[in-house]
Design a protein around this nucleic acid. Structure first.
Length: 583
RNA sequence: GCCGCCGUAGCUCAGCCUGGGAGAGCACCCGGCUCAUAACCGGGGGGUCCCGGGUUCAAAUCCCGGCGGCGGCACCA
C-alpha cells in the first residue's frame, strides 16, 4: 500500500479486552496488547490516523463470585483491578488512545440500545429453561459452578460441564449428589427465561464475510469456517448474574447481558469515548465505525477467534446500521512457558507485573515479538531469552549502532559525515540494507511482526559486515573522504534501524534518536525518512551503549527473589494485594 | 468420543498449501579482525525431516494408518 492511501484511511486498532479477575500474563500480552501496540506504532509512523482502543472486561460470574467470596463489592473489586491493569499497560508502553472498561456509562447505554435494536429487528427471542439454582447464594449456577459425582467414573468433584478425571462431557443434571461449587448446598431446578440471539438468520451473511475477506489469516479463517460448518445455533445473550449490564428487553428485569456479547461492543464504545474525552462529540467516534474508509483490525489470542470473527460480525450485521466489519484479525497461537501452559493455580508462567521486575520493558518487548506465536504455539524459555538479549539485541544490533556512532563521535568529532560522493562499493551495501528495510515494511504491513523483527536484525548484520569490509577506522588515516563515505553509509543504516525497531522497542529507539542529534522525537517523523541521510547539521553526541548483557547469575538471582516475593504475595487475600509492586 | 493443531540439527524454529538443492539463528570447533559493549566477520562439523505404508520418475512436502505432545467441543471467560 502506498503512503497516500495509508493516510486517507482511518485505522481502528483493537486489542482483546483482558478479564480483570487477575493481571494478564505474558501469553495474554503478546497476543493482544503488545502486538496491537507494535502495529499501531508502525501505522502512526506511516502517518496514518490511528485510534488504538481496548479496556477491561469487568462483568460476569467469576468476578461476581470471587467478590462475594472476598466480601467486597464487585464494583470495588474491578475498579481496583482495572486501575492496576491500566497502569501496567502504560508501564509496558502500550500506546492506547483510550483504555477504558465495561463499566463506562457510554458502554452500558450503548450496549442496551444496541440489543434493544436487535430485539426490534427480530433477532432476539425468549425461551424458558430449567436451570440449577442455588437457594443459599440466591443465583443460577453456570455448568462449571456445579460439582458432584461423575456418573461414569465416580469422581466426586466432577464439574457440571466435564469430569476432570475421566474427561467425560456432562450435563449438570447427570451429576450424582450435585452441589453448588460456591457454598456446597444442594441446587434446585428452577424455570428461568433467557433471551437468545437467532444466529441462524445471520449465518449466511457471516459466511460470506469470512469467505470473501481474503485478508484474514489462515488460522482465523480455518477456525471460523469450521464453526460455520457446524451451523450457527441460537445463543443466549442473557445471564442470571446480578453483576453486569441490565438486559434491556421487556420482561428481562433481573437479567444481565452475557459478558462476551457486551465486551466485543466495547471496541465501538471505546472509540466513542475517546472523542468525548477529547471534548468532542462521541458520535464522531460512532460515525467512524460506519465509514467505508475505516479499517478495523483486531489483535487477539486464538481462543478469541469465535467471538471476533463470528459473533461480533453477526451482531454488527444484525444491527443493520452499516457498521464496517473487521478489515482483518490477527490471532496468535499460544505462548507456552518453558514448554508448559501458563497457569496461575499451577504457578506456571510470568505475569506482566512480575516481568517488569526482572527485565527492562524493551527487552521484554523485543523477546516477545521475536518469538511471537504467529503460525503455531511457541515456547518462552529463559535460556532463549538470555540468548536473544545478549547475542541478538546487544551484540548484533546494539554493538553495530555503537560502532558507528562512536566512530563518528571520536573520529569526526561528532560531525555528521556528508561526503561529496558515496563510493560504489558503499552504495551496494546501502542498497542491500534498503532492500531489507523495504521487506521489513512489507512484513509490518501484513502484520507479520515476528518476521519483520527477524528481518530487521539483518540490517545490523549487513552493517557489521560492511564495517569489517570497509574498515573506516583505517581509511580515515589514508583516505579521509572514503572514510567519510563509509561512515555516512553506516549512519544511514543506523537510521533505518531506528525506524524499523521503534514499533518494538520505542524507549530505546527514542534514546537513539537523541544520540543521532535530533531535538524532536522520532514520533514526529515519518517512516519514509528512514531512507534519507541524517542531516549534516545534526551532531552525534553522548554516545552510550543502548543495551547491556544480562548474566545467567544475575537472572537466576532475580528469579529467586521473584519466587520468594511471589510466595508472599500470592498468599494474600485480595487479588490487588497479590500484584507485584511496580515503581 | 468428536474436531483441530503440532512432531525438521544440542536448543528455538522456517520450509509443507503450489513435490525435485535439507535450511536459519543460537550453542560448538577453526581462522581473520581489533573501530566497537571479550563485541564483529569468514569457514566448518552436526539431522533415518516421529514411525509404517501408498501415490509419483521424484515425498520433509500429497494420501492412508499408527505413536507421541497439545488445544477446542459453545452458556467458560
Amino acid at each position: 500500500m502506498n503512503s497516500r492511501s495509508l493516510r486517507d484511511t482511518v485505522w481502528i486498532i483493537g486489542s482483546a479486552w483482558p478479564y480483570v479477575n487477575f493481571v494478564p500474563h505474558l501469553g495474554n500480552l503478546i497476543g493482544s496488547a503488545l502486538s496491537a501496540d507494535v502495529f499501531a506504532r508502525y501505522l502512526r509512523l506511516r502517518g496514518a490516523r490511528v485510534y488504538f482502543v481496548s479496556g477491561s472486561d469487568v462483568h460476569g460470574t467469576p468476578i461476581e463470585v470471587e467478590a462475594r467470596k472476598l466480601g467486597v463489592n464487585p464494583r470495588e473489586y474491578v475498579e481496583r483491578m482495572h486501575n492496576i491493569v491500566k497502569r501496567l499497560f502504560s508501564c509496558w508502553n502500550i500506546s492506547y488512545d483510550n483504555y477504558t472498561w465495561t463499566e463506562s456509562d457510554i458502554h452500558i447505554n450503548f450496549v442496551r440500545e444496541f440489543f434493544m435494536k436487535l430485539y426490534e429487528r427480530g433477532y432476539i427471542f425468549v425461551r424458558e429453561d430449567r436451570l440449577p439454582y442455588c437457594p443459599r447464594d440466591m443465583m443460577f449456577l453456570p455448568d462449571r459452578f456445579i460439582v458432584g459425582t461423575c456418573p461414569y467414573c465416580g469422581y466426586e468433584n466432577a464439574r457440571g460441564d466435564q469430569c476432570e478425571r475421566c474427561g467425560a462431557l456432562l450435563e449438570p443434571q447427570q451429576l450424582i449428589n450435585p452441589r453448588c461449587a460456591i457454598c456446597g448446598s444442594t441446587p434446585e431446578w428452577r424455570e428461568t427465561k433467557h433471551w437468545y440471539i437467532d444466529l441462524k438468520k445471520l449465518e449466511k451473511a457471516v459466511r460470506e464475510y469470512i469467505e470473501q475477506n481474503d485478508r484474514l489469516p489462515e488460522n482465523v479463517k480455518t477456525m471460523a469456517l469450521a464453526i460455520l460448518q457446524g451451523g450457527l445455533k441460537p445463543r443466549s445473550v442473557t445471564r442470571d448474574n446480578k453483576w453486569g449490564i441490565p438486559a434491556p428487553f421487556p420482561g428481562s428485569e433481573g437479567k444481565t447481558i452475557y459478558v462476551w456479547f457486551e465486551a466485543v461492543l466495547g471496541y465501538i464504545t471505546a472509540t466513542m469515548e475517546y472523542f468525548s474525552r477529547a471534548g468532542r462529540d462521541s458520535r464522531e467516534g460512532l460515525e467512524l465505525w460506519k465509514n467505508s474508509n475505516t479499517r478495523v483490525v483486531f489483535f487477539i489470542g486464538k481462543d478469541n477467534i469465535p467471538f471476533h470473527a463470528i459473533i461480533l460480525p453477526a451482531l454488527l450485521i444484525a444491527s443493520g446500521e452499516g457498521y464496517v466489519l473487521p478489515y482483518t484479525i490477527s490471532a496468535t497461537e499460544y505462548l507456552l512457558y518453558e514448554g508448559k501452559k501458563f497457569s496461575k493455580s499451577q504457578r506456571v508462567g510470568i505475569w506482566i507485573d512480575e516481568a517488569l521486575k526482572i527485565l527492562d520493558v524493551d527487552y521484554w518487548r523485543f523477546i516477545l515479538i521475536y518469538i511471537r506465536p504467529e503460525t503455531r504455539d511457541s515456547s518462552f524459555t529463559w535460556s532463549q531469552a538470555l540468548e536473544l538479549i545478549n547475542s541478538i539485541l546487544n551484540d548484533t544490533i546494539g554493538n553495530f549502532i555503537h560502532r558507528v556512532l562512536s566512530l563518528i563521535e571520536r573520529r569526526l568529532g561528532g560531525k555528521v559525515p556528508s561526503p561529496d560522493s558515496v563510493k560504489l562499493e558503499d552504495e551496494s551495501y546501502l542498497d542491500k540494507a534498503r532492500d531489507i528495510f523495504c521487506k521489513v515494511t512489507e512484513l509490518y504491513e501484513n502484520i507479520k511482526l515476528k518476521e519483520a523483527l527477524h528481518e530487521t536484525v539483518e540490517i545490523a548484520r549487513i552493517g557489521n559486515k560492511f564495517l569489517n569490509e570497509r574498515k573506516p577506522w583505517e581509511l580515515i588515516k589514508t583516505r579521509p573522504s572514503e572514510a567519510e563515505s563509509a561512515m555516512s553509509v553506516g549512519l544511514q543504516m543506523v537510521k533505518m534501524l531506528a525506524f524499523s525497531l521503534y514499533p518494538v522497542i520505542p524507549n530505546s529507539m527514542s534514546r537513539l534518536w537523541k544520540m543521532l542529534g535530533y531535538s524532536d522525537s522520532i514520533e514526529e517523523h515519518v517512516w519514509e525518512e528512514a531512507l534519507e541521510p541524517v542531516p549534516p547539521s545534526n551532531e552525534i553526541r553522548n554516545v552510550k551503549p543502548l543495551f547491556s548483557k544480562i548474566s545467567r547469575e544475575h537472572l537466576e538471582n532475580r528469579l529467586r527473589e521473584l519466587e520468594e516475593d511471589r510466595r508472599a504475595r500470592w498468599a494474600k487475600k485480595y487479588p490487588w494485594e497479590q500484584v507485584a509492586v511496580i515503581p
